[in-house]
Design a protein around this nucleic acid. Sequence first.
DNA 1: AACAAGGTCAACCGCGTTATC
DNA 2: AGATAACGCGGTTGACCTTGT
Length: 252
Amino acid sequence: MVRGPFVDANGVKKGAWSEEEDQKLISYIQTHGHPNWRQLPKLAGLARCGKSCRLRWMNYLRPNLKRGNYTPQEEEIILKLHEQHGNKWSLIAEKLPGRTDNHIKNHWHSQLKRRSRDRGKSDSEVKGNKSGRSNNNNMTKHSESDIVKAVSELNNIFESSSLDCTETTSSTQAGQDNSASFLPSTDTESSTKNSPEEYNSGACQEVSKFPEFSGDFWTEPFISEDIYSEYCYPNIEGAGDMFSSDGALLFF
DNA sequence: AACAAGGTCAACCGCGTTATC
DNA sequence: AGATAACGCGGTTGACCTTGT
Protein backbone atom coordinates (compact mmCIF):
# COMPACT_ATOMS: atom_id res chain seq x y z
CA MET A 1 0.00 0.00 0.00
CA VAL A 2 2.95 2.20 0.54
CA ARG A 3 6.18 2.89 -1.18
CA GLY A 4 8.85 0.44 -0.19
CA PRO A 5 11.61 1.81 1.99
CA PHE A 6 14.60 3.26 0.18
CA VAL A 7 17.46 5.64 0.88
CA ASP A 8 17.81 8.75 -1.25
CA ALA A 9 21.00 10.38 -2.48
CA ASN A 10 21.41 12.28 0.79
CA GLY A 11 21.22 9.18 2.90
CA VAL A 12 17.73 10.00 4.06
CA LYS A 13 15.42 7.06 4.37
CA LYS A 14 12.03 7.31 2.70
CA GLY A 15 9.01 5.14 2.16
CA ALA A 16 7.28 2.86 4.58
CA TRP A 17 8.19 3.08 8.23
CA SER A 18 9.45 0.04 10.09
CA GLU A 19 8.28 -0.89 13.55
CA GLU A 20 11.71 -0.10 14.90
CA GLU A 21 11.60 3.40 13.49
CA ASP A 22 8.16 3.92 14.93
CA GLN A 23 9.33 2.85 18.33
CA LYS A 24 12.31 5.17 18.18
CA LEU A 25 10.11 8.08 17.25
CA ILE A 26 7.51 7.29 19.87
CA SER A 27 10.12 6.79 22.51
CA TYR A 28 11.86 10.05 21.74
CA ILE A 29 8.73 12.17 21.63
CA GLN A 30 7.49 10.54 24.80
CA THR A 31 10.56 11.74 26.60
CA HIS A 32 11.41 15.01 24.89
CA GLY A 33 8.35 16.09 23.00
CA HIS A 34 8.89 17.58 19.57
CA PRO A 35 10.13 21.14 20.01
CA ASN A 36 12.15 20.94 16.80
CA TRP A 37 11.18 18.52 14.06
CA ARG A 38 14.28 19.34 12.07
CA GLN A 39 16.58 18.15 14.80
CA LEU A 40 14.39 15.35 16.01
CA PRO A 41 15.45 12.59 13.62
CA LYS A 42 19.10 13.16 14.38
CA LEU A 43 18.52 13.19 18.11
CA ALA A 44 16.20 10.21 17.94
CA GLY A 45 18.60 8.18 15.84
CA LEU A 46 16.42 8.13 12.78
CA ALA A 47 17.62 8.40 9.20
CA ARG A 48 14.49 10.34 8.25
CA CYS A 49 13.86 13.97 7.53
CA GLY A 50 12.00 16.04 10.06
CA LYS A 51 9.02 16.40 7.82
CA SER A 52 8.66 12.67 7.50
CA CYS A 53 8.87 12.24 11.26
CA ARG A 54 6.28 14.90 11.84
CA LEU A 55 3.93 13.39 9.30
CA ARG A 56 4.32 9.91 10.71
CA TRP A 57 3.65 11.15 14.21
CA MET A 58 0.75 13.39 13.36
CA ASN A 59 -1.06 10.98 11.09
CA TYR A 60 -0.28 7.61 12.52
CA LEU A 61 1.57 7.35 15.82
CA ARG A 62 0.08 10.19 17.80
CA PRO A 63 -2.05 8.94 20.67
CA ASN A 64 -5.76 9.59 20.59
CA LEU A 65 -6.06 9.08 16.88
CA LYS A 66 -9.36 7.68 15.81
CA ARG A 67 -9.18 5.10 13.09
CA GLY A 68 -11.71 3.01 11.32
CA ASN A 69 -14.98 3.86 9.68
CA TYR A 70 -16.41 7.33 9.67
CA THR A 71 -19.75 7.74 11.35
CA PRO A 72 -22.61 9.44 9.51
CA GLN A 73 -22.24 12.37 11.90
CA GLU A 74 -18.60 12.77 11.07
CA GLU A 75 -19.30 12.58 7.37
CA GLU A 76 -22.05 15.10 7.72
CA ILE A 77 -19.72 17.53 9.43
CA ILE A 78 -17.06 17.04 6.81
CA LEU A 79 -19.56 17.68 4.06
CA LYS A 80 -20.90 20.76 5.75
CA LEU A 81 -17.53 22.22 6.55
CA HIS A 82 -16.18 21.45 3.12
CA GLU A 83 -19.14 23.19 1.60
CA GLN A 84 -18.33 26.22 3.68
CA HIS A 85 -14.55 26.27 3.68
CA GLY A 86 -13.47 24.19 0.72
CA ASN A 87 -10.30 22.13 0.97
CA LYS A 88 -9.27 23.48 4.34
CA TRP A 89 -8.57 20.04 5.69
CA SER A 90 -6.75 21.14 8.80
CA LEU A 91 -9.65 23.38 9.67
CA ILE A 92 -12.11 20.54 9.18
CA ALA A 93 -9.88 18.21 11.17
CA GLU A 94 -10.02 20.60 14.11
CA LYS A 95 -13.70 19.89 14.39
CA LEU A 96 -13.25 16.15 14.34
CA PRO A 97 -11.14 15.10 17.29
CA GLY A 98 -9.04 12.08 16.50
CA ARG A 99 -9.21 12.53 12.75
CA THR A 100 -6.28 14.00 10.89
CA ASP A 101 -6.38 16.32 7.94
CA ASN A 102 -4.75 13.64 5.84
CA HIS A 103 -7.33 11.04 6.78
CA ILE A 104 -10.17 13.42 6.14
CA LYS A 105 -8.71 14.43 2.83
CA ASN A 106 -8.37 10.80 1.78
CA HIS A 107 -11.90 10.05 2.86
CA TRP A 108 -13.18 13.03 0.97
CA HIS A 109 -11.50 12.05 -2.26
CA SER A 110 -12.48 8.42 -1.96
CA GLN A 111 -16.12 8.79 -0.92
CA LEU A 112 -17.48 12.14 0.08
CA LYS A 113 -16.57 14.00 -3.08
CA ARG A 114 -18.92 11.78 -5.04
CA ARG A 115 -21.63 12.17 -2.45
CA SER A 116 -21.23 15.91 -2.39
CA ARG A 117 -21.53 15.97 -6.16
CA ASP A 118 -24.71 13.92 -5.96
CA ARG A 119 -26.21 16.54 -3.71
CA GLY A 120 -26.11 18.97 -6.56
CA LYS A 121 -28.21 16.67 -8.69
CA SER A 122 -31.95 16.39 -8.68
CA ASP A 123 -33.55 13.53 -6.79
CA SER A 124 -34.41 11.72 -9.99
CA GLU A 125 -30.83 11.92 -11.14
CA VAL A 126 -29.60 10.62 -7.86
CA LYS A 127 -32.05 7.74 -7.83
CA GLY A 128 -30.63 6.66 -11.13
CA ASN A 129 -27.20 6.27 -9.59
CA LYS A 130 -26.79 2.60 -8.90
CA SER A 131 -23.99 3.09 -6.43
CA GLY A 132 -25.65 6.00 -4.71
CA ARG A 133 -26.04 5.71 -0.97
CA SER A 134 -29.27 7.51 -0.61
CA ASN A 135 -29.18 8.33 3.07
CA ASN A 136 -27.63 11.71 2.45
CA ASN A 137 -29.23 12.57 -0.80
CA ASN A 138 -31.98 14.63 0.72
CA MET A 139 -29.56 17.05 2.22
CA THR A 140 -29.48 20.56 0.98
CA LYS A 141 -27.08 23.42 1.09
CA HIS A 142 -26.05 24.16 4.62
CA SER A 143 -26.18 27.45 6.32
CA GLU A 144 -23.55 28.46 8.80
CA SER A 145 -26.00 27.91 11.60
CA ASP A 146 -26.46 24.32 10.45
CA ILE A 147 -22.77 23.72 10.79
CA VAL A 148 -22.52 25.45 14.12
CA LYS A 149 -25.42 23.38 15.34
CA ALA A 150 -23.95 20.09 14.18
CA VAL A 151 -20.56 20.80 15.65
CA SER A 152 -22.11 22.07 18.83
CA GLU A 153 -24.11 18.88 19.20
CA LEU A 154 -20.93 16.88 18.94
CA ASN A 155 -19.23 19.09 21.46
CA ASN A 156 -22.10 18.51 23.83
CA ILE A 157 -21.54 14.81 23.54
CA PHE A 158 -17.91 15.23 24.49
CA GLU A 159 -18.51 17.67 27.30
CA SER A 160 -21.35 15.74 28.86
CA SER A 161 -19.36 12.56 28.87
CA SER A 162 -17.92 11.44 32.14
CA LEU A 163 -14.57 9.78 32.34
CA ASP A 164 -13.15 7.71 35.10
CA CYS A 165 -9.46 7.39 34.51
CA THR A 166 -9.01 4.66 37.03
CA GLU A 167 -11.66 2.46 35.60
CA THR A 168 -10.74 -0.40 33.40
CA THR A 169 -13.29 -2.28 31.43
CA SER A 170 -13.44 -5.51 29.61
CA SER A 171 -11.72 -5.82 26.31
CA THR A 172 -13.44 -4.67 23.20
CA GLN A 173 -16.23 -6.75 21.84
CA ALA A 174 -15.78 -8.76 18.73
CA GLY A 175 -17.24 -7.29 15.61
CA GLN A 176 -17.66 -3.79 16.85
CA ASP A 177 -16.49 -0.73 15.08
CA ASN A 178 -12.79 -0.42 15.65
CA SER A 179 -12.98 3.31 15.38
CA ALA A 180 -11.47 3.76 18.78
CA SER A 181 -8.52 1.58 18.05
CA PHE A 182 -6.06 4.23 19.10
CA LEU A 183 -6.47 2.79 22.50
CA PRO A 184 -4.26 -0.07 23.41
CA SER A 185 -5.96 -3.40 23.33
CA THR A 186 -5.58 -5.80 26.17
CA ASP A 187 -6.29 -8.65 23.87
CA THR A 188 -2.86 -9.48 22.64
CA GLU A 189 -4.06 -12.37 20.57
CA SER A 190 -6.27 -10.19 18.49
CA SER A 191 -3.74 -7.46 17.93
CA THR A 192 -2.16 -7.47 14.55
CA LYS A 193 1.56 -7.34 14.22
CA ASN A 194 2.78 -4.00 12.97
CA SER A 195 -0.63 -2.48 13.44
CA PRO A 196 -0.86 1.16 14.42
CA GLU A 197 -2.76 0.08 17.47
CA GLU A 198 0.21 -1.91 18.59
CA TYR A 199 2.48 1.00 18.00
CA ASN A 200 0.25 3.27 19.97
CA SER A 201 0.18 0.89 22.82
CA GLY A 202 3.91 1.21 22.93
CA ALA A 203 3.66 4.96 22.85
CA CYS A 204 2.37 5.14 26.35
CA GLN A 205 4.39 3.66 29.10
CA GLU A 206 1.51 2.93 31.39
CA VAL A 207 -0.93 1.52 28.95
CA SER A 208 -2.76 -0.42 31.58
CA LYS A 209 -4.02 2.85 33.00
CA PHE A 210 -5.94 3.66 29.88
CA PRO A 211 -9.63 3.08 30.19
CA GLU A 212 -10.81 0.67 27.58
CA PHE A 213 -12.92 2.23 24.92
CA SER A 214 -15.71 -0.15 24.32
CA GLY A 215 -18.22 1.44 22.06
CA ASP A 216 -19.05 3.91 19.42
CA PHE A 217 -16.99 7.05 19.30
CA TRP A 218 -20.03 9.27 19.34
CA THR A 219 -21.78 7.67 22.24
CA GLU A 220 -18.96 6.61 24.50
CA PRO A 221 -17.21 9.04 26.82
CA PHE A 222 -14.51 10.80 24.95
CA ILE A 223 -11.01 10.20 26.15
CA SER A 224 -9.81 13.36 27.78
CA GLU A 225 -6.71 14.88 26.35
CA ASP A 226 -5.55 15.29 29.90
CA ILE A 227 -4.98 11.61 29.84
CA TYR A 228 -3.25 11.98 26.56
CA SER A 229 -0.86 14.51 28.00
CA GLU A 230 -0.45 12.82 31.32
CA TYR A 231 0.37 9.42 29.96
CA CYS A 232 2.00 10.24 26.71
CA TYR A 233 3.82 13.44 27.55
CA PRO A 234 4.77 12.70 31.11
CA ASN A 235 7.75 15.00 30.99
CA ILE A 236 6.26 17.90 29.16
CA GLU A 237 4.67 20.80 30.94
CA GLY A 238 1.54 22.39 29.63
CA ALA A 239 0.71 19.58 27.26
CA GLY A 240 -2.92 19.80 28.26
CA ASP A 241 -3.30 23.53 27.81
CA MET A 242 -5.72 23.10 24.97
CA PHE A 243 -8.27 21.68 27.33
CA SER A 244 -10.39 23.23 29.98
CA SER A 245 -10.01 22.39 33.63
CA ASP A 246 -12.83 19.88 33.51
CA GLY A 247 -11.19 18.10 30.65
CA ALA A 248 -13.46 19.43 27.94
CA LEU A 249 -11.97 19.95 24.57
CA LEU A 250 -11.37 23.54 23.61
CA PHE A 251 -11.53 22.76 19.94
CA PHE A 252 -14.74 24.60 19.45
C1' DA B 1 -9.53 -18.45 -11.94
C1' DA B 2 -7.57 -14.57 -14.09
C1' DC B 3 -7.49 -10.08 -15.26
C1' DA B 4 -8.80 -5.09 -15.20
C1' DA B 5 -10.50 -1.10 -13.09
C1' DG B 6 -11.41 1.55 -9.38
C1' DG B 7 -10.82 2.39 -4.34
C1' DT B 8 -7.98 3.15 -0.33
C1' DC B 9 -4.53 5.27 2.37
C1' DA B 10 0.33 6.06 3.95
C1' DA B 11 3.79 8.86 2.46
C1' DC B 12 6.14 12.39 -0.36
C1' DC B 13 6.57 16.97 -2.55
C1' DG B 14 6.18 21.79 -3.18
C1' DC B 15 4.76 26.02 -1.60
C1' DG B 16 3.03 29.55 1.54
C1' DT B 17 3.37 31.27 6.18
C1' DT B 18 5.61 32.21 10.43
C1' DA B 19 9.57 32.62 13.40
C1' DT B 20 14.25 33.73 14.14
C1' DC B 21 18.60 35.85 13.23
C1' DA C 1 14.08 45.20 6.70
C1' DG C 2 15.77 41.31 4.47
C1' DA C 3 17.46 36.52 4.55
C1' DT C 4 17.10 32.09 6.15
C1' DA C 5 15.16 28.26 8.69
C1' DA C 6 11.40 25.75 10.27
C1' DC C 7 6.77 24.51 10.16
C1' DG C 8 2.31 23.28 8.39
C1' DC C 9 -0.93 22.62 4.72
C1' DG C 10 -2.87 20.85 0.50
C1' DG C 11 -2.03 18.26 -3.70
C1' DT C 12 -0.27 14.22 -5.57
C1' DT C 13 1.77 9.66 -5.91
C1' DG C 14 2.13 4.77 -5.74
C1' DA C 15 1.34 0.19 -4.02
C1' DC C 16 -1.91 -2.82 -2.09
C1' DC C 17 -6.84 -4.13 -1.76
C1' DT C 18 -11.49 -4.93 -3.41
C1' DT C 19 -14.89 -5.57 -6.72
C1' DG C 20 -16.62 -6.47 -11.17
C1' DT C 21 -16.30 -8.90 -15.57
